[in-house]
Amino acid sequence: MAHVEKKLTPIELLQKFIFITLGAVLMALALEVFLVPNAIIDGGITGVSIILSKVTSVSLGIFIFVLNLPFFILGRRQIGRTFAFSTLYGIAVMSVSTALLHDVQPFTNEKILAVLFGGLILGLGVGLVLRFGGSLDGTEIVAILISKKTNIPVGQIIMFINVFIFIVAGFVFGWDSAMYSIFTYYIASRVMDVVVEGWDESKSVTIISGEYEEISQAIMDRLGRNTTFFYGKGGFSKEDTQIIFCVVNRLEVAKLKAIVQEFDKKAFIAIEHVSDVLGGNFK
């Protein structure tokens, strides 16, 4: 049975359109006003486009659109129609914006300032587009398709591609620029994570204790977080027990630990990072 994508409401479509447009313009601003004038590049297809633009003197916007287009066509069926066309729209807006901003004077010629502010704006732009269902670089599509064939994680594939691009940039722009570009990429990726995942980083907590009922009730009463019981059996003791599972934000982790240890100082607590939380009463 074919997968039917959820139809967006007019308000959702307008919101998607506004924020993808804003994100694409911000990325173009970071490239043309901070990074490219200071010989600093981004990773992925954008980085390849900057290198080719430097070597051939052809407009950066043209390379960004032309190089991304084959990957869009290749991955359209794999990534879904809505995501694909959101990506195509975002890349088109970014390409046009880079052309319009090409003759704007750079805000700074200090490379450290260009790295910091360029990376910040770049991460904000890419993060907005990702958060609202699009992408600004075909590298992710390539990585997804390769990963399906090879079982290599997507993140590792993107890392290998970018390492190669930064090495090439070292020969074209010089090794200082390549190293500045690596720091810019790191800053942008951290900002992008914050935009996509939000400031309220969530943690999933698994608790194993004989005092599970008291601990569960205290978590619900004092933190206002729902808990779930899973049946468990000790591998060594062979005793049946209930395992507590709950999700809290990062500011509540210390308080949760104190609650658990108040009832059982030997309780087992496992805490993991959660990328996103949807549904339930979690706010």
Rank of each mutant, 00 (worst) to 15 (best):
V4W: 13
E5N: 13
E5A: 08
K6N: 09
T9A: 11
I11D: 13
L13Y: 12
Q15E: 13
D42G: 08
V48T: 11
L52F: 15
L52S: 02
S57A: 04
V58T: 06
F63P: 02
I64M: 14
N68E: 06
R76C: 10
A84T: 14
L88S: 07
G90Y: 06
T98V: 14
T98H: 08
A99P: 01
L101H: 11
Q105R: 13
K111Q: 13
I112V: 15
A114D: 02
L116I: 15
G125P: 05
L130T: 08
G138W: 01
E140V: 02
I146F: 09
I152Y: 08
I152Q: 05
P153H: 04
P153V: 01
I158T: 11
I165Q: 01
I167K: 07
V168H: 08
A169I: 10
F173G: 04
W175M: 14
D176R: 15
M179Q: 09
Y180R: 15
I182P: 09
T184S: 03
T184R: 01
Y185M: 09
Y185C: 01
I187Q: 00
A188S: 15
A188K: 00
R190S: 06
V194I: 10
S204T: 09
T206H: 06
E211W: 10
S216N: 05
I219A: 01
D221S: 11
G234T: 11
T241D: 11
N249R: 13
R250I: 15
I259E: 06
F268I: 00
I269W: 14
I271D: 12
H273D: 09
V274D: 00
L278H: 12
G279Q: 12
G280N: 09
